[in-house]
Amino acid sequence: MAEKHPGTSGMFAFQGSLPRLPVLPLGETLRKFLDRTALLLDAQDRHEAEGAVLSLKKQRRRTPSLPARTGQRPSA
């Protein structure tokens, strides 16, 4: 069984022993979202989803990343 980390309990007790998974770039995640939902949405909902994605992309360009805001380096 995985090692339980001190100072943690419940759902997060073994989080430190889990492998770190890659996080996709936001643009790729948003593209996949639109691709996967295209057949599930009607034309109006698809148009709204595309607008929300564009809005999020614009907002993201104006917002610095977490490491830039906090001065922290991303952990490997």
Results as ranks from 00 to 15, higher is better:
11 M>K: 11
52 A>G: 01
19 P>H: 00
43 A>C: 06
20 R>V: 10
15 Q>T: 09
37 T>D: 10
32 K>I: 14
52 A>H: 05
63 T>N: 03
72 Q>D: 08
37 T>I: 04
62 R>K: 13
57 K>W: 09
56 L>Q: 14
33 F>E: 08
46 R>L: 08
52 A>M: 08
39 L>Q: 08
30 L>I: 02
3 E>C: 11
39 L>D: 09
10 G>Q: 01
4 K>G: 14
65 S>K: 10
3 E>V: 15
29 T>Y: 12
9 S>N: 11
62 R>P: 03
48 E>A: 12
57 K>R: 15
8 T>N: 01
68 A>K: 14
50 E>Y: 06
42 D>G: 11
45 D>C: 10
17 S>P: 02
63 T>V: 02
18 L>E: 04
51 G>P: 09
38 A>G: 03
23 V>F: 04
26 L>W: 01
9 S>Y: 12
25 P>L: 01
34 L>I: 01
1 M>I: 05
54 L>V: 07
44 Q>K: 11
32 K>C: 08
30 L>F: 03
54 L>N: 07
43 A>S: 14
6 P>K: 06
22 P>T: 01
61 R>S: 09
47 H>V: 10
69 R>L: 15
3 E>T: 15
57 K>Y: 10
19 P>G: 01
18 L>Q: 10
34 L>R: 08
8 T>P: 00
16 G>L: 09
36 R>E: 15
28 E>H: 10
16 G>E: 14
45 D>F: 11
38 A>K: 04
31 R>Q: 05
18 L>R: 10
47 H>P: 01
60 R>I: 07
29 T>C: 12
54 L>Q: 11
62 R>N: 08
64 P>N: 03
42 D>C: 10
33 F>T: 10
6 P>V: 07
21 L>D: 00
3 E>K: 14
41 L>R: 09
23 V>C: 07
66 L>K: 08
50 E>C: 05
61 R>F: 04
71 G>W: 00
55 S>A: 15
43 A>F: 03
2 A>H: 04
67 P>D: 00
59 Q>S: 12
33 F>R: 12
31 R>H: 00
12 F>M: 05
34 L>E: 06
66 L>V: 08
17 S>N: 07
51 G>N: 08
51 G>K: 06
30 L>S: 04
42 D>V: 07
25 P>Q: 00
2 A>K: 05
27 G>E: 15
43 A>K: 12
